[in-house]
Computed example of a mutant assay.
Amino acid sequence: MELKDSIRNKYKNYLLLERSLSANSIEAYMTDLDKLSGFLFSESISAENVKLDDLQQFVAQLYDLGIGARSVARIISGIKSFYGYLMLDGYIQTDPTELLETPKIGLKLPVVLSVDEINELMDIIDQSTKEGQRNRAILEVLYGCGLRISELVKIRFSDLAFDEGFIKVEGKGSKQRLVPVSPAAIREINSYLFYRREMTPKKGFEDILFLSNRATPISRITVFHYIKEYAEKAGIKKNISPHTFRHSFATHLLEGGANIRAIQMMLGHETITTTEIYTHMDREYLRQEIIEHHPRNKPR
């Protein structure tokens, strides 16, 4: 069975908007995905029903074709990324690549904004408009909470627990977690609510926090374009995306002295070997980590 074009196109957009990959990198990912698609077609297997054994057979065929270990590692990395996306968007419930072995290779360091660059980008936003106030709140939440853009666009009023200092987030595989929300983010959301309450959402979206000008949930690509626009106005030359704020969140907390395990839990990066540690960490401790160490919570 062939890989559905709709899934392929959505994955390509994911690589652009959330991974912020270059055109050449995206082309390489899609070429590797096409290799898998060809294998699935020959075996009459759908991408959603792939098992670990199928993937191991696919990798074996790569070696049989004489493809080198480094290239195989790159292809496997791309396949893992694809199935991570399928998990993120709810196409599958379990990741068949989790136990797929891959050669160890160096990782590309993500783009990170400095604290000054974050401040410059925030300050460039015109908060006298409803769009500007909404976008300021969006960027403050992305940076102040370390959320994925896919998590942010799904936030509902019912997910906000400001009295306790948390936002309920639905992450990869529909897993929910409580993320500490900074006072700065709370302040910007409350400012945005002045405009949000004046809007009449389209039916079915009444509980969605961040709405577009059409009164529907704001899209990932819209946020992506606003970030590019603000970065250009602020004179920031780095190739940034919504995910850059998540990387910056983690990096700045770590540089500020926050506990690495607390950061991983706030990001929702639970793994087989660390899940037990994370689930036993105290929620108030997590909240204090972000309050004490996040640069946006300090007087400017």
Rank of each mutant, 00 (worst) to 15 (best):
M1N: 12
S71P: 13
L15N: 07
I138C: 07
I149G: 01
P110K: 06
F205T: 10
E27R: 13
Q288N: 14
Y143R: 06
G66C: 09
S182M: 12
L99G: 15
E43Y: 11
H294R: 02
E131L: 10
K80N: 04
L209I: 05
E18I: 07
L16S: 13
K35H: 13
T275I: 15
T97M: 06
F245Y: 04
Y192L: 05
T216A: 08
L21P: 03
S128I: 10
R220Q: 08
L33F: 02
D64S: 13
S212E: 00
S77A: 10
I79G: 09
L86Q: 00
G257C: 09
I125D: 05
C145A: 00
A184L: 06
V115R: 01
G66P: 06
Y192G: 02
F39M: 01
T251Q: 09
L253R: 03
E229L: 14
L16E: 13
K4L: 12
A73K: 06
Y11E: 04
Y14N: 09
M1W: 15
T244G: 03
I186P: 03
L109I: 09
E164F: 00
P242I: 02
I67Q: 06
S150F: 00
N135S: 10
L113T: 06
R300Q: 15
S42K: 12
D126T: 05
A250N: 02
R70S: 14
M265R: 14
S20L: 11
E229R: 10
G268W: 02
T129Y: 01
H247S: 11
R246D: 13
L139M: 14
E276D: 08
L17I: 15
A137F: 10
F210R: 06
L147I: 02
R261K: 12
H280T: 11
G257E: 03
Q133S: 13
P103K: 08
D32P: 10
A215T: 14
E120H: 09
G78K: 07
S114D: 11
I260P: 13
L3E: 00
T279D: 11
V72T: 09
E232R: 15
L178H: 01
R300E: 13
G38Q: 05
R136K: 12
Q176F: 00
A231N: 07
V59G: 04
G256N: 06
F58M: 01
V169K: 03
F210V: 00
M122W: 01
N239F: 07
E292P: 12
G84K: 01
T31R: 15
L52I: 15
G257T: 10
V115C: 10
T273K: 15
K175S: 08
K130A: 12
D95W: 04
N213F: 02
F210H: 10
S212V: 04
A69G: 15
I189C: 11
K175Q: 04
R214F: 12
G235W: 07
R177V: 02
L211P: 05
S212N: 00
S128H: 11
A47W: 04
E198K: 15
V111S: 02
R136C: 01
T271G: 12
K203S: 14
R19E: 07
N190I: 11
L147N: 05
E170W: 09
L142M: 06
S6Y: 14
Y14S: 08
A262D: 01
Q56Y: 11
H294G: 04
G84L: 09
F39L: 00
I124L: 11
P183W: 08
E289D: 08
F41W: 09
A231K: 06
S77T: 05
I67P: 11
R8S: 02
I291N: 08
